[in-house]
């Protein structure tokens, strides 16, 4: 390859559920540290795209690549290991674990110490655990949550839970982050904080983001490019201005 491969490249991606095409012919390319929005009416298949890209569902058609590496057929944890992490539309935290433990779980894949090491509490165990503790606290500090580290996750306010989910995803050390409606249910202040956090992680981690969002002002504000899907198919692509003027998009949102 002469040119550097895009971070994410999906070709003709599609899935059928019993004859129903939930997603069809989905093509997308996301470059390094790009932020792309994925929008569409309710039930258009946005979350299904995320489920395909994270190995929750296996595509029945098409392929997708992360940095040129084929991802089809990989299980969720293998996709994560390769470098795609996500958040969920309806927050999925480890509710009864502490905030810092939530983050530490995601660091697990880069931890090496063996079971014997753990049981004998060897030097390696302590070294890695201390390292991870430090990293997790740094990550929480990034989101201004370090003082909450020992709280139980389910006791956090809603906005903080969203942020914790993003922090946990970041801990997997990924190249592509999929955010599923991160601003859903947030008040304007919380949305503002979220925006700040997203900008911060882009600067800091140099990662690419694919974002599903209903809050149009948020999408128009921060996305460089937008992909619009309806009934599982892409109906428009382009910059926020292009997309917002596209008659197909307007029709899809207003209904014909």
């Amino acid at each position: 390859m002469s040119k550097e491969a895009p971070v994410l490249q999906a070709k003709n991606l599609g899935i059928q559920f019993g004859g129903l095409k939930a997603v069809n012919n989905f093509d997308i390319e996301i470059g390094k540290s790009e932020l792309v929005g994925l929008i569409g009416p309710n039930g258009a298949g946005k979350t299904t795209v995320f489920n395909l890209l994270t190995g929750v569902y296996q595509p029945t058609e098409g392929t997708f690549f992360l940095n040129g590496e084929k991802m089809n057929g990989k299980l969720t944890h293998q996709v994560v290991a390769a470098g795609i992490a996500r958040t969920f539309q309806n927050i999925r935290l480890f509710k009864k674990l502490s905030v810092i433990e939530n983050v530490k779980v995601a660091f697990n894949k880069n931890m090496k110490y063996s079971m014997v090491s753990a049981i004998l509490r060897t030097r390696k165990f302590w070294k890695e655990e201390e390292e991870i503790d430090k990293k997790a606290r740094e990550l929480l500090a990034l989101f201004h949550m370090e003082h909450l580290a020992d709280n139980i996750a389910e006791n956090l306010p809603y906005g903080q839970q969203r942020k914790l989910e993003i922090a946990r995803a970041l801990a997997t050390d990924m190249k592509l982050l999929l955010l599923d409606e991160p601003a859903a249910g947030m008040n304007p202040t919380e949305t503002g904080e979220l925006l700040e956090a997203i900008n911060l992680i882009r600067e800091k981690f140099n990662i690419s983001i694919l974002l599903i969002e209903h809050d149009m002002s948020l999408v128009m504000n921060i996305c460089e490019r937008i992909v619009v899907i309806d009934y599982g198919e892409i109906i428009a692509k382009g910059t926020p201005e292009e997309v917002s003027k596209n008659p197909k998009v307007i029709a899809a949102y207003l209904g014909e």
Binding site: V56, T76, V80, A85, L93, K96, V105, N108, R168, A171
Partner: peptide, 10 residues
């Protein structure tokens, strides 16, 4: 707590 979130955390 949540096996789907766990696998999505690697």
């Amino acid at each position: 707590e949540d096996y789907i979130a766990a696998s999505s955390s690697g």
